[in-house]
Nucleic acid binder design. Structure first.
Length: 688
DNA sequence: CAAAGATGTCATCAT
DNA sequence: CCATGATGACATCTT
């Protein structure tokens, strides 16, 4: 038996060492039945004994400091070091805070309040608990992903929250499904608690309700065995035994902490700011979806370490993405404006509206984008901008008219409010001369000629058939001409072909009698009048809009003197410049609106960054506070050679790059640079 | 009739 | 060099 016992003991020790090297916590203690504290479960190695520690354990002078003090101090020193960096794992900080908070842990002394724990932990491997420890490891991985939910519950749970207890740290890693599943399990497990303890005066009541709905929904999806004792069971072994049957997420206690609540507050502010503008028009499902998305985002952020950084980068990403999207859209719009005649104004409109209508799907990013920049607003503003009356006309009439009619409507509305007959009357009354008739004859003649030549665009241009306005509207120049005060051209193909729509538009717009009362000669632009005066045989529209080859062909087909040629070129140049000016103004307005949009987006971004900065400062302040407290705790347990406590005002803690921790006096520290090796009044040099 | 906005025109530069 | 587009500045028109 002795022989076997020896081997067994050695084997256990070896297993423990191996596990320690592997990073698995080795739970040791004189009392194997004592349930490990939450602190131990979460902090793991702080209570584990690695071989190196064993050596120090053996090397410790029995008179120097008691073992408990040593271990506790070491743990505390480790925390000091970890607090020095801001990448303190959330779970550990929270665990520490949980332990520190006296309220929720009436029966669980904090690690600082349990000086006698460590000394009783001998090296006693527990091979039987190997599986449990593995599960605990995985469980710690889960802690982060679940912590958000816990914090949410902590926030909304109010007084109904149960105090955290180590017994809650049952491990359950066989959660089916993804992260949603994890939330599902947790939410379900915490469901009764949440529902039983409604927040008394929560400002975020609505969001809390939606969260509860979400949790309830999840609970319905995955029914869990209700266990009211989970909150305070504290019997970890019982939990472990129940685990195989319980295939769902671990039941964990809320771990309230100031850090978590502040983090949550920050994230919740963002969440609300995102949800707020659309809360009215969104369904509960969408809201819940956003909440879930936000939660997943927060989970990811928590896993990333420092959540604020993540948040800021995310926001920046959103903003940049928005800008890219909008610029792409702008570029697309311009490209369409330039190239096609195939896209009607309505199509353009639908393209502009498309992003906003497609992004109602509750995605966080798209929501943020919508909220952050109101990109659709840009399109709307743009479409309703005064510089694009054609588009706005199309948008207002698109519900009742086809795309072709809307496009032609805006043409005619700006072009001429007269009907075909009225136009002819006007022509006759204004010109009233044989010259006009002659010119029209020539126009028709030219039209036939061009048709015979076979020029495609010219054929379309010169065709007076009413149905051909569909072809005309696709010509590039027709897209931009919303107003035409100086080129009414009553006989022009465009005016004729769109006259019927023009009448409708005129009727709808009130068909200002101004035009009729004005002298008819005003209907003619200066160039028109000049052209007529010089007897130019084709319309200004033709002069302006013909491609250069056809235009040159046209000029060669007529005998034109110098003045006529110059005037024709001037007309063409002015006409093109007019269109260019319209496009230019349109673009300018577009840019202006885009810049306004950018400004508002940047303002929002700035305010968010300021909020995050404030939160980070609060965080930092709190960490400093905790560090100070911890510092005091550490020094309260340190003793010099004579057994007297060290004065924190007199000594400093040194953290070497190799993990060594030492105590140095402040005087010596002041005398020599910090990089210097500590010496002099060095009561004790503790190394790991 | 004045003011403001819309639109046209010119000059100039760039492509 | 020419045609054309872009754009600022000014003129003219419209409301």
């Amino acid at each position: 038996m002795l022989y076997l016992k020896k081997y067994l003991t050695e084997g256990l020790v070896q297993v423990a060492i191996l596990l320690s090297l592997w990073g698995v916590q080795v739970q040791v203690g004189l009392d194997p039945d004592r349930p490990p504290s939450l602190h131990e479960l979460l902090l793991g190695q702080t209570s584990a004994l690695t071989p190196a520690r064993h050596r120090h354990l053996w090397d410790l002078h029995p008179k120097s400091v008691d073992l408990d003090g040593f271990f506790t101090a070491r743990r505390l020193l480790g925390w000091v070091r970890s607090l020095d960096r801001l990448q303190v794992p959330h779970a550990e900080v929270e665990a520490w805070l949980v332990q520190r908070e006296p309220g929720p842990l009436p029966d669980q002394p904090s690690p600082l309040d349990r000086p006698a724990d460590g000394i009783h932990r001998n090296v006693q491997a527990r091979a039987a608990q190997e599986e449990d420890e593995e599960e605990e490891e995985e469980e710690e991985e889960e802690v982060r992903s679940v912590s958000l939910t816990l914090r949410l519950q902590h926030r909304f749970g109010g007084p109904g929250l149960r105090p955290p207890h180590p017994g809650f740290c049952s491990s359950q890693t066989s959660e089916p499904g993804t992260g949603t599943g994890t939330r599902t399990g947790t939410g379900t497990a915490e469901g009764p608690s949440v529902s039983a303890s409604k927040p008394a005066s929560s400002v975020l009541l609505q969001a809390a309700v939606s969260l509860q709905e979400c949790l309830r929904l999840l609970e319905d999806t995955c029914p869990f065995p209700e266990d009211p004792e989970l909150g305070e069971a504290g019997d970890r072994r019982e939990d472990v035994q129940r685990r195989p049957a319980d295939r769902y997420a671990p039941l964990r206690p809320p771990r309230p902490s100031e850090t978590s609540s502040m983090d949550l507050e920050l994230h919740w502010q963002d969440l609300l700011s995102i949800l707020e503008p659309e809360a009215g028009g969104r369904t509960a499902e969408e809201t819940d979806g956003s909440v879930l998305d936000q939660m997943s985002l927060l989970d990811a952020a928590l896993e990333g370490g420092f959540s604020l950084e993540m948040e800021a980068s995310l926001e920046e990403e959103r903003y940049l993405e928005h800008r890219t999207t909008r610029e792409d859209r702008r570029g697309q719009d311009q490209a369409e404006r330039r190239h096609e005649g195939n896209v009607s104004e309505d199509t353009l409109l639908s393209l502009s509206f498309c992003p906003s209508s497609e992004t109602v799907s509750g995605s966080l990013l798209t929501d943020a984008e919508k909220e952050a920049d109101s990109d659709s607003g840009l399109s709307l503003d743009f479409s309703h901008s005064p510089a694009s009356p054609c588009v706005s006309e199309a948008s207002t009439s698109s519900s009742s008219s086809s795309s072709s009619s809307s496009s032609s409507t805006c043409m005619s509305a700006g072009g001429s409010p007269f009907t075909e007959e009225e136009e002819e009357e006007a022509v006759e009354s204004v010109a009233g001369s044989d010259m006009e008739l002659e010119m029209r004859m020539k126009q028709e003649e030219l039209e036939e000629e061009m048709g015979a030549v076979g020029g495609g665009s010219a054929e379309q241009l010169f065709t007076f058939k009413p149905g051909n306005h569909k072809l005309l509207q696709h010509l590039p120049w027709t897209e931009h001409v919303g107003h035409d005060h100086t080129y009414p051209q009553p006989w022009s193909p465009v005016a004729k072909t769109t006259s019927s729509h023009g009448r409708a538009a005129a009727a709808r717009d009130g068909a200002s009698p101004y035009r009729r009362s004005v002298s008819e000669s005003k209907m003619w632009s200066r160039d028109e009048r000049r052209a007529r005066a010089l007897g130019i045989p084709f319309s200004n529209e033709l002069i302006v809009n013909l491609p250069v080859e056809e235009f040159n062909d046209l000029l060669t087909k007529y005998r034109l003197d110098e003045d006529q040629l110059n005037l024709i070129k001037d007309i063409r140049r002015r006409g093109k410049n007019k269109i260019a000016a319209q496009n230019c103004r349109k673009r300018k307005l577009d840019v202006l609106l885009g810049l306004e949009d950018d400004v508002s987006g940047l303002r929002r971004y700035r305010s968010r960054l300021l909020r995050e900065k404030e939160a980070a400062l609060r965080n930092l302040q709190e960490m400093k506070l905790r560090l100070g407290t911890l510092h005091q705790e550490v020094f309260s347990r340190l003793r010099d050679e004579t057994g007297r406590p060290l004065d924190a005002a007199e000594y400093l803690l040194h953290f070497g790059p190799d993990g060594a921790v030492a105590v140095a006096s402040r005087q010596n520290q002041a005398e020599r640079p910090p990089t210097g090796r500590k010496d002099g009044k060095k009561p004790r040099d503790k190394r790991k």
